[in-house]
Computed example of a mutant assay.
Amino acid sequence: MRYFLEIAYDGTRFHGWQLQPNALAVQQVLDDCLSKILRQPVSSTGSGRTDTGVHASQQFVHFDVAQPLEEEQVVFRLNRILPNDIAALNLYLVPDQAHARFDAVSRTYHYHISLVKNPFKRYYAWYHSRELDVAKMNEAAAILLKYEDFTTFSKVKGDTKHYRCTMLEAGWQQQGEELVFTIRANRFLRGMVRLVVGTLVDVGKGKLTVPQFEQIVASQDRSQASGAAPSEGLYLARVEYPEQLLPQV
């Protein structure tokens, strides 16, 4: 039987989501805890990878077990043994062929920039002391909706077969002492959001004009993009599936 598990995590001490040798990953901790409470080996598959230091306020994984589970009881027991920086939120029985990664129709990321120095947000937002032109950053962000090929914002020598993404939303909002960037698409390239944010911030600082930003996007040349924004400000915020597969939460 296949289940979707909804989780959230603080990525500060983890080397990303994906299981890897010689480094602590969220997937490793989750699989170990699931295997312990279910008393059988469990191997989860995530909706996507998050890099070292990146957080998730909503992530979905799927896993298979031999017998039906009591969803609320599993969530309760799992939270008792998970470390404090990972939380199990909900568990859903899904069709046997449902896939946490391939069946997702969109993903939303948030990026937080702190406009004041706050020691309590040092792992959760990028502190930026210079004033940023948010209107110009939004003008540039809107350009992303015109394009499908995001080779410019792809990691060098990645294993991606193609660089096309359907961009659904991209924009900045000021929320108190923070700027929050929301970006939503059907898929993202590895490291893409941080490269987009880093380049948009250069527009906000006046280092790039809006037309120059569009030229960079259209160039399909990774070397034209600015440096990646720090990982601590990035959150995987929402993963959406077809309504018939999973009620939207």
Rank of each mutant, 00 (worst) to 15 (best):
Q73W: 07
N84E: 15
A23T: 14
G198D: 08
V193W: 10
K136H: 05
R238A: 11
S154D: 12
V26M: 10
V201S: 09
W17Y: 08
A56E: 06
T52F: 02
A142Y: 00
E169P: 00
P211C: 13
S35W: 10
R77P: 02
P247A: 08
Q174V: 12
Y9D: 04
Y123S: 11
R238T: 10
Q97S: 13
G46F: 02
A56W: 06
F181E: 04
K146D: 05
R164S: 09
C33G: 13
D221L: 08
E169N: 13
R39D: 14
A225N: 06
D202H: 14
P119Y: 02
D31Q: 14
V75C: 03
V193N: 14
S106F: 04
V29I: 15
A100P: 03
V180L: 10
V217L: 06
F181L: 06
K117M: 09
L34R: 13
W17H: 03
S106D: 11
Q67A: 09
V134S: 08
T209Q: 08
Q174G: 07
I143W: 00
D133T: 04
V193H: 12
Q220S: 13
A225P: 09
N79G: 11
T166A: 04
Y9Q: 05
E131P: 02
Y127L: 03
H112D: 11
P41H: 03
R238E: 13
V193L: 14
G233R: 06
V54N: 03
Q58V: 01
V61G: 03
G53Y: 02
F60S: 00
Y92Q: 12
G204L: 09
T108D: 05
W126E: 14
V180G: 11
Q67M: 04
